[in-house]
Amino acid sequence: MVDRSWIGKDLGSFVVEVAPKEVRRFVDAIGDDRPMYRDVEAARAAGLAGIPIPPTYPFSLMLDREDPFVFLRLLDIPQGKILHAEQRFEYHAPLYADEPITLTEKVADIYDKKGGALEFVVLDAEARRADGTLAVTMRRSLVVRHG
């Protein structure tokens, strides 16, 4: 059983800055050839202030830290037992490469199904720009398989 007393607790805050080459590496891996992710002029032509962070990359921002799976250690969950169950992103303002992004995360919920054979851990996170503007909110649900 995952310790339910974690519900509502903060998993900390950290700041990352994404280099343009990290954006390029990501869009190369997923096969996205949109020029705005590779060329700042193309981004500006689309009305953006710089190279934008791709829509699902904020998930990677959460892993771009010294201990990417800190919550597994804190909640005492083996890495081989988890699967991604659901993921959601809401976009409020753009995020850009070469700008500090502040990330915070908390445990939103922990619950079980099938008589405890499956446990779900729901983590809510947000990404803010340097001036404090809320840019992206995200929710990831992970399922822990027991037995």
């Binding site: 949109r34 705005m36 689309a46 009305g47 953006l48 934008p52 829509p55 699902t56 699967l83 991604h84 169950a85 659901e86 993921q87 959601r88 992103f89 809401e90 976009y91 753009p94």
Partner: peptide, 13 residues
């Protein structure tokens, strides 16, 4: 969305 007009995405795996 033209790379700029996405408001939300969600999925179930």
């Amino acid at each position: 969305a033209g790379g700029t007009r996405l408001r939300s995405v969600s999925t179930r795996f």
